[in-house]
Design a binder for these strands. Structure first.
Length: 341
DNA sequence: AAAACGGGGTA
DNA sequence: TACCCAGTTTT
């Protein structure tokens, strides 16, 4: 078994990312709140995108206490566009727990860390390693790709045996010296050289013993998950507008699609049903304009949205000014509202 | 159009 | 324990 830590750390010292906003610097020691926040954001988004969201987020919520005390809608508003909104809700829940049950300091036991909402084994390992210098293995998407190629690991990530194999390898290679740097280094390698397409093997410090490189099978690893055909669904979105241009939005339930976000009223895209919905909302309302259909794709289905502008006079409802919205909106709703001007 | 990303939830 | 689910960006 060839060790990968040594060449990897040597590469990291020269080419790794050392000045990200959540990393320690000369003037600022490591901040576990920043590390945690960045790890959660990085679960779903690339570094370049996360930087902007991260800086914005810490401006609004500079520390754990600020986040714990914030309204859920205020948190979701800053998270909007990142997707997976359950994570933003978990972020706030987690902050509350750390403030009330752990005196505002993250627990330093990995089991306690994993018990916090939104933190699993990999994220817990990364936070404890980077924040407190503890020795833990991590297995994020970058590490999975590096190890799957390095050992030509068979099977896709959806299979428990594959994940077991990858965790085994991850633990095996994780060093007990410079663990924090190693954690950052292997993520950096996956993010910058060992990329999904066109890996830069010529500059890779691990190329000498990489099985995929040796056999020219880089594009076959990691093995892809067998794909499923996504069903198509359809909905009408009613854009209720009052005379001053305000729109009527509803907060969606916590569970399911766009949980906790504010969205337009939806109904079946059928003239009779739409007419009924509108009449129930406001007896004097009428359809003003039908906008072009928008297609939005999710992991499990495609959604065809027919946006319909409805002019309203009912003043008993609460309309919001589009320009001053301070709530999280689903991406297609944001798109529709942007068209209204 | 397809793939990815880690954790939570459910059967 | 083994799936199933979620939203957006990137390729």
């Amino acid at each position: 078994m060839h060790l990968i830590a040594k060449p990897l750390l040597k590469w990291f010292d020269q080419f790794g990312r050392h000045s990200l906003p959540w990393q320690a610097s000369k003037n600022s020691p490591i901040n576990p709140y920043f590390v945690w926040l960045s790890e959660i954001m990085l679960q779903q988004t690339q570094v370049t995108t996360v930087i902007g969201y991260f800086n914005n987020f810490i401006r609004h919520f500079p520390d754990l206490t600020a986040l714990a005390n914030a309204d859920e809608d205020a948190v979701l508003a800053q998270w909007a566009g990142l997707g997976y909104y359950a994570r933003a809700r978990n972020l706030r829940k987690c902050a509350k727990i750390v403030v009330t049950q752990y005196q505002g300091e993250f627990p330093k036991e990995i089991k306690a860390m994993i018990a916090l909402p939104g933190i699993g084994e990999s994220t817990a390992g990364a936070i404890l390693s980077i924040s407190f210098g503890q020795n833990h293995a991590i297995l994020d998407g970058n590490v999975k790709r590096v190890l799957a190629r390095y050992h030509q690991v068979k099977g896709h990530y959806g299979q428990s045996t594959t994940l077991k194999d990858l965790w085994h390898l991850a633990r095996q290679y994780t060093p007990d010296t410079r663990n924090a740097d190693y954690t950052q280094a292997i993520m950096d390698l996956g993010a910058t050289l060992c990329t999904r397409s066109k890996p830069d093997c010529a500059n890779c410090p691990l190329a000498a013993h990489c099985q995929a490189k040796k056999h020219g099978t880089q594009s076959e690893y990691p093995n892809l998950k067998p794909k499923k055909i996504k069903p198509m669904r359809e909905t009408a979105m009613l854009i209720y507008r009052n005379k001053s241009g305000g729109v009527y939005l509803e907060k969606r339930p916590e569970k399911g699609i766009w949980g906790g976000l504010w969205s337009l009223v939806e109904c079946e895209n059928d003239a009779k049903i739409i007419a009924k919905m509108i009449a129930e909302f406001d007896t004097s309302a009428h359809i003003q304009q039908k906008l072009p259909m928008i297609k939005h794709s999710f992991t499990h289905f495609h959604l065809m949205i027919s946006p319909i502008i409805v002019a309203c006079t009912n003043t008993s409802k609460s309309f919001q000014s589009i320009a001053e919205l301070k709530v999280g909106l689903p991406a297609p709703v944001k798109k529709i509202l942007a068209q209204l001007g």
